[in-house]
């Protein structure tokens, strides 16, 4: 079967999984359904011939699931107030988003056809093995992120460092004793 058929099937599966994740009442089931969406994108990356990205997406998805399950403490903390439920806002949101979808259908005709990318810059990397000759590494994606565009990877490390710093600062404990102190950065 051609790749496009597999992708359509997986995308429909992911859409159903995401709607289930948002509407279900039990929060543990919702977190597991998000795992379906994340692993579905990892399978889609494999169909689109990107194994590097599939490994990274799979591992970071598992890590995000672990952190999210840690945030879920007991089922009774998540019972919402019935009075503040607003059916009008839900209806208006669905109508507006459906309108956005219908109005933007024309725009998808202007995109390049699926399977025919415009490879202007990447032609230099792919043709005749230029990237393999200049950097001598067999993995083209690694040679792009660590040799041709190493400055972007420096920015990425900085953003990850700042986000982890923020997380550790928020989860700081103020106690009197020195024994149970969270890590200070």
């Amino acid at each position: 079967m051609p790749v496009e058929t597999w992708l359509i099937f997986t995308l429909i599966f992911m859409i159903i999984g995401s709607i289930v994740a948002l509407e279900i009442k039990n929060l543990l089931s919702a977190i597991i359904s998000i795992g379906v969406v994340g692993l579905g994108t990892s399978v889609c990356f494999l169909f689109l011939q990107a194994p590097d990205l599939a490994i990274v997406q799979f591992l970071f998805e598992i890590f995000a699931l672990i952190i999210l399950i840690r945030a879920y403490l007991k089922a009774e903390y998540h019972e919402m107030d019935k009075k503040s439920e607003n059916k009008l806002v839900t209806f208006i949101a669905i109508v507006v988003l459906a309108g956005v979808l219908v109005l933007s259908l024309d725009m998808f005709g202007a995109l390049p056809e699926f399977g025919n990318p415009i490879m202007e810059t990447a032609n230099h990397y792919v043709e005749k093995g230029n990237a393999a000759k200049e950097t001598n590494s067999a993995n083209l994606v690694a040679s792009i992120i660590l040799d041709y565009r190493a400055y972007d990877t420096l920015g990425e490390i900085t953003v990850l460092f700042t986000a982890i710093l923020g997380t550790l600062t928020i989860l700081r404990i103020k106690t009197g004793s020195q024994k149970e102190e969270s890590d200070e950065e």
Partner: peptide, 30 residues
């Protein structure tokens, strides 16, 4: 080969999104 340039950029994006999720969960717990 398929185009390797968007793959390199999306790799950066996936890593940053993990930092965002970790920070949001820390907010929620607090």
């Amino acid at each position: 080969m398929v185009d390797p340039l968007p793959q390199a950029l999306v790799l950066t994006s996936i890593v940053i999104e993990l930092g965002i999720t970790a920070m949001l969960v820390a907010f929620a717990i607090r």
